[in-house]
C-alpha cells in the first residue's frame, strides 16, 4: 500500500476533530476488511492522507437492549452480533443477515458500522488500479457508468439513474426491514437517520468528518416472523445477488403488517411497500405470496444482463412470505 498517516483516536470527539484536521482527506478504519482492500487496489482517484483508527475508541462495541429496543455500538463485531442471544431471540433477521456475511474470519474482524458503510462491490468500481488503471465513474467523481453497456449481471434493477452499483451490505437489508436507524456524530453534533435513508445514489449519508456510532433497532412485535434470505452463487464468501429481509406479523394466518426489504436491487436496500400492501390483511397463501411477489418488482427496470434478478426477487419475496421462521 501507498503510505498514509496513521492516527489512533481515543474518543468519538477525537475521531471527529482528527477527521476535520485532514479536511476530507482522511478515511476511517475500524475492522479494516473493506477499507484496506480499497487502498490496496487503489480504486479511488484520491488516496487518503490519513487513516483514522477508531478501534481504539473504548466502549463502542456494545450490544444492549432497553425499553426502546436494541442498541448496537458501531464497533460491535459481526460475529458477536451473530452469536448474541438477544439478537438471535428478538432481532432474528439481523442475526441471520450477520451470519451470512463473507466468512468467519471476516465476521470476527468486521464491525456492524463497517458493514453498513462499506463501499460498493461494483466490479467496474473495484477494478484494481495495478491492472492498467482504475475505471473512473460518477461515484469516483466523474465518468459514465461502464455497467450500463457492459456486464451488469450484478447491478441495480430499480431506481438507479446514473450509477447502477448496489449496496452490498447484508445487515443493512435486515435493518431496513426492522426499521432501524443509525446514529451519526459529526462536528455539528448527533443525528439519527433511518437505515433506509442512509444510502444515496452515489454512496451513503456520512459527510466528511462524520462517523457512524450506533445502530438502534426498535423491538419488533414478539409474534412477528422474521426472515433474511440471501441469494448468491455461493453461501459463504459471496455478496448477495438479491436478498430479502422481512418482518411479518401474522395472526391466524392473516398478514396484519409486514416490512419487507429488498437487497441487491438498488443503491440502497428498498422497502417493498407495494408488496407489503399486497399482503396486508390477506391470508398468507400461495396467491397472496404471488401477488406480493409481482408487486415487489412492479418498478423494476432491469439492464441488459440482469433481468434474472427480477425473477429472483419475486421468488425470494414469495418465499419469505410462505416460509416459517426458519433458523
Amino acid at each position: 500500500m501507498k503510505s498514509f498517516q496513521h492516527v489512533s483516536v481515543p474518543t468519538i470527539e477525537g475521531a471527529i476533530s482528527t477527521l476535520k484536521d485532514y479536511k476530507g482527506k482522511a478515511k476511517v478504519i475500524a475492522g479494516g476488511t473493506d477499507i484496506l482492500s480499497v487502498l490496496k487496489d487503489r480504486i479511488l482517484p484520491e488516496y487518503p492522507q490519513a487513516l483514522i483508527n477508531i478501534k481504539t475508541l473504548s466502549g463502542l462495541d456494545y450490544i444492549r437492549e432497553d425499553k426502546d429496543g436494541l442498541k448496537i455500538g458501531a464497533l460491535a463485531r459481526l460475529s458477536t452480533i451473530a452469536d448474541n442471544p438477544v439478537v438471535n431471540n428478538k432481532y432474528r433477521a439481523l442475526a441471520k443477515a450477520a451470519k451470512t456475511v463473507a466468512n468467519p474470519q471476516i465476521r470476527n474482524m468486521g464491525t456492524i458500522g463497517g458493514n453498513l458503510a462499506q463501499d460498493t462491490r461494483c466490479w467496474y468500481y473495484r477494478y484494481p488500479h495495478q491492472l492498467g488503471g482504475r475505471i473512473m465513474c460518477l461515484r469516483k467523481g466523474n465518468g459514465p457508468c461502464a455497467a450500463v453497456k457492459g456486464d451488469n449481471r450484478y447491478h441495480a434493477i430499480m431506481e438507479a439513474k446514473k450509477c447502477f452499483a448496489v449496496c452490498p451490505s447484508d445487515t443493512a437489508v435486515a435493518l431496513v426491514a426492522l426499521e432501524a436507524t443509525v446514529k451519526i456524530r459529526g462536528p455539528q453534533g448527533e443525528r439519527t437517520v433511518l437505515v433506509s435513508a442512509f444510502y444515496q445514489p452515489l454512496g451513503n449519508d456520512l459527510k466528511d468528518n462524520e462517523i457512524l456510532t450506533e445502530i438502534q433497532v426498535p423491538e419488533p412485535p414478539a409474534s412477528a416472523r422474521q426472515e433474511y434470505i440471501k441469494f448468491a452463487l455461493r453461501k459463504p464468501v459471496d455478496f448477495g445477488i438479491v436478498s430479502v429481509a422481512a418482518v411479518i406479523k401474522v395472526t391466524d394466518g392473516v398478514c396484519h403488517e409486514s416490512s419487507i426489504a429488498l437487497g441487491g436491487v438498488a443503491s440502497a436496500p428498498l422497502r417493498a411497500t407495494a408488496a407489503e400492501q399486497a399482503a396486508k390483511g390477506k391470508v398468507i397463501n400461495e396467491t397472496t405470496a404471488n401477488s406480493a411477489a409481482e408487486a415487489s418488482v412492479a418498478g423494476a427496470r432491469p439492464l441488459s444482463k440482469n433481468s434474472y434478478k427480477v425473477e429472483i426477487v419475486k421468488t425470494l419475496v414469495k418465499r419469505v412470505l410462505l416460509s416459517g421462521d426458519s433458523e
Binding site: 479494516g32 476488511t33 483508527n53 468467519p104 474470519q105 470476527n108 474482524m109
Partner: peptide, 21 residues
C-alpha cells in the same frame, strides 16, 4: 480477505492477517 491463507489467531479468534495493519 477472500481466501484465508493468512489466517492467524488473535485473542482466540481466527483473523485475516492480510487485512490488519
Amino acid at each position: 480477505g477472500a481466501c484465508g491463507a493468512c489466517t492467524v489467531i488473535i485473542d482466540g479468534k481466527a483473523v485475516l492477517s492480510c487485512l490488519m495493519l
